[in-house]
């Protein structure tokens, strides 16, 4: 059986890559994908710890997170569509109307 810590390290690496993606990339869609990736890394942590504890609560938690992620993607992509319709760009550097 693979130790739980291996899964935690793998999840941490994927989470870090997601953070770097959010900070480095400028395309709103790619930033959104990185956020999804971070959420998946946390899901992996929860599933690994659910097996560690022998409790199903962690898996139910992941199931609910999946439903929330589906709702979030639907709303987020609708917002991106609306931004493209109004400003004709997905570059978040150009969307600085609320910055200061």
């Amino acid at each position: 059986m693979v130790p739980t810590s291996y899964y935690l390290i793998l999840a941490a690496i994927i989470f870090t890559l997601g953070v770097i993606g959010v900070l480095v990339r400028r395309n709103a869609l790619v930033i959104f994908m990185s956020v999804e990736m971070m959420m998946n890394a946390v899901n992996l942590t929860l599933v690994a710890l659910a097996r560690q504890k022998g409790s199903l609560a962690g898996q139910v938690f992941v199931f609910l997170i999946m439903a929330v992620a589906a709702a979030e993607v639907a709303i987020g992509l609708a917002i991106v569509m609306e931004i493209v319709r109004h400003r004709d760009t997905t570059n978040v550097d150009e969307l600085n109307l609320l910055k200061w």
């Binding site: 739980t4 810590s5 390290i9 560690q52």
Partner: peptide, 24 residues
């Protein structure tokens, strides 16, 4: 961040997992 998580995970020893291989 990776160094912090690695230290936190490595500093504590996990006991063998309690869940059966097909408990989900």
């Amino acid at each position: 961040f990776l160094a912090g998580v690695g230290y936190a995970v490595g500093a504590r020893a996990f006991p063998p997992a309690a869940g059966a291989p097909d408990f989900g």
